[in-house]
Design a protein around this nucleic acid. Structure first.
Lengths: 402, 402
DNA sequence: GGTATTTCGTCATGGCCGTTGACAAATTAG
DNA sequence: CTAATTTGTCAACGGCCATGACGAAATACC
């Protein structure tokens, strides 16, 4: 929401159009007067903004609302469920997925495909993804939806603001420009780290702690590539100077401990990474043998698996203590595939956090709350789609161009 | 602050006035045309903005600039060195300081007073500080300067957006509202953690790495209360949800190590905190025996002191590795009193960072640069004064009110 | 030296945009 | 049924920036 200052009046107009759209996206159906009250403009001004958006087909009017309150009831406004939509795509280690979301945030089409993308050829993978995109958008078109932007979630590092994947170790991709291999008729293409998108999905879903004052901030842990964390600060993603922020997996947990592939020693990843935990649980990591298998053993109550997860949780808690002391987030969220392990992971994590973050919580008895994301593995895909939707709502000028 | 801005165009005007002021504050003397080019408005628009600021006495015209370039030379504009000014104050453990800064960023008056503020009475300390403020602003008045805001640096935690010191262990203050004990005729009062202000001073001083692209981001380490770090992300201070961000001192360095007063074990502070380092160097911590004494022994080449600092540096490097992996800052700055130890502290810190942050630097051979702040112990005071100046430049409407 | 060129600052004009104040419409309270 | 309240719209207004032209003041070139 933090947009650049308006410097010309047309920019101000764009920003106000966008504010109307976002207000309706957040607050469900509202009358013109209610929108005006929320964004601090007069009813007359909002009327002209709404007229423009209605003419452009971005809003629809519902019948007069039965409010029960005194006074003339307002006509309820709603974002359209036709017209522009956002497209999200996810490139996972063992699957591809596409999701079409309308401006209201409803998922309208979803296509999934199981594959093995480890050490794969980007051209082949993106050709498959493109055909899935074609199928999904064709189906969306029958519902009157027209793509206004595409966001792709990737398990790797993406250069800030570019569409090039710098490194995706699990895919074996290096310096691959995805925009060149994807359709260009779906609107602007954005490529983003999947952990970041998972965190944004969490932020935008709104089903967590109410924003007491000011925007939200949290640490969102996932474990697709090693152990990644996405940091949301004041409602915005913290990407870092080079786009590499959130490398929780290489926080030193035991400075003289096990050597890590990164060259350091005792990184969190050597204790709580997928491979380390699977081995500790007596499982041989391999294709198909991933966190899901471990969760199954925990559910079965197998002691080796439980001990392995507990130890991983302790290490994760130590690393998260560092993050909490540094960042003072409102909460910590365990998302992605790790969310399945939450029942066994949260207790040791919470224990370490309680021990080690008393200063950062101001000595109060309540440590940072740690929760599991209800979105779980769907986070990155939904975050990608919603990111495309929000980008469209941010630029109403583009959408009104017809 | 969440005031419903009913007049969105006058808000735009205020912003543009502010942009003119900030452009001149950053870029030295500039002509109207140069300002227009920088902020993206037309010369005509900037002319009216500048007229208003000239009439309000915030700008002055210099004679036509001798540029040597073809074309009519522009009349150079400059912020005034009279009229409104910012006042900064610092409450240290063993000193008080006040600084008056004009809109150009020049320090015009500075008053320092040595005291012992450990476990002191806030009322007495602030009475003394008030008399210093009176003296400084009286002297500033003879130069035509009129205070437009006061920012106070304190070695403790301040609630976000309030003027109340939650906890300042070294001062022995708890829940003290400073605004009630300070003069109210110096403009709005702001209270801020001194580590944060030191970092902002560093950010605004501009004498570090050139901003290659986008705003700056760095981790700024100081050591007044334990070990504090201030985090600057995208040119803004990261304060945390409760205002407690930057507690570097309690990052776990050796999770089963020495017990810490915070209740945790192996916190950085137990290895690199002032008290721990002094003891390791064979010094008995006490009033007057602080980091300065240690630096003197290092300069003398005393082996025990050198070893103590080297070990502290290693611990600091481990903790900073965590911070760098999480935040991906452009650089790390050692500031405050710690800057005096830089010659002996930087090598071990750099060594640990190089070992442990290869992932966060994208595998490139150049790790995050670590530098010592050239401001050193002056950072917090200068940051406080400049923060007051910038707040004034942000609200030109207030300054033009006469 | 003189003219052309370039750049600066200003002016009048115009368009855009949100505000103000008033009014009809639609509903509830009594 | 009347009064009160709220909604949505309209016309007039004022503020603000863009546009395009102009004179002013310097340099570049002949």
């Amino acid at each position: 929401m933090a947009q650049p200052a308006p410097q010309s009046q047309s920019e101000m107009r764009q920003r106000n159009l966008s504010r109307v759209l976002h207000t309706l996206a957040d607050g469900g159906p509202l009358s013109r007067a209610a929108v005006a009250a929320r964004i601090g403009l007069t009813r007359a001004a909002v009327s002209t903004l709404v007229d423009e958006l209605l003419r452009g087909g971005l809003l629809v009017e519902q019948g007069p609302g039965r409010s029960g309150a005194v006074g003339r009831p307002g006509t309820q406004l709603l974002l359209t469920d036709r017209g522009p939509c956002g497209v999200g795509a996810e490139i996972g280690v063992d699957h591809l997925a596409v999701c079409v979301m309308d401006l209201r945030g409803e998922t309208r089409v979803r296509v999934t495909h199981e594959t093995r993308n480890q050490h794969s050829d980007p051209t082949a993978v993106l050709a498959l993804l493109t055909s899935m995109l074609r199928r999904a958008t064709a189906e969306a078109a029958t519902a009157g939806l027209r793509p206004a932007g595409l966001t792709v979630a990737v398990p790797g590092l993406v250069n800030r603001g570019s569409t090039t994947v710098l490194r995706a170790p699990n895919l074996g991709w290096h310096g691959t420009d995805l925009a060149a291999l994807l359709p260009d008729d779906l609107g602007p293409v954005t490529v983003e780290n999947e952990a970041n998108l998972g965190a944004l999905a969490e932020l935008w879903s709104g089903h967590h702690a109410p924003p007491l004052s000011g925007p939200d901030s949290f640490v969102h842990v996932s474990a697709e590539i090693g152990i990644g964390a996405a940091l949301v600060v004041d409602g915005e993603l913290l990407r870092g100077a080079h786009g590499f922020a959130g490398e929780l997996g290489h926080l030193p947990v035991r400075p003289d401990g096990r050597p890590c592939s990164c060259g350091g020693r005792g990184c969190l990843e050597t204790y709580a990474g997928e491979e380390a935990v699977l081995r500790a649980a007596g499982l041989e990591p391999g294709p198909g043998v991933r966190i899901g298998a471990l969760a199954a053993r925990c559910e079965a109550g197998e002691p080796t698996a439980l001990r392995a997860v507990r130890q991983a949780g302790t290490a994760l808690g130590i690393a998260l203590s560092g993050a909490v002391n540094l960042l003072d987030p409102r909460q910590v969220v365990i998302g992605g595939a790790l969310a399945r392990l939450a029942p066994w992971l949260l207790p040791p994590v919470g224990r370490e956090l309680a021990r080690r973050t008393s200063v950062a919580t101001g000595g109060r008895s309540t440590p940072v709350p740690v929760t599991a994301s209800p979105l779980g593995p769907d986070g990155p895909l939904l975050g990608a789609a919603r990111s495309a939707v929000r980008a469209a709502l941010d630029a109403p000028g583009e959408l009104l161009r017809d």
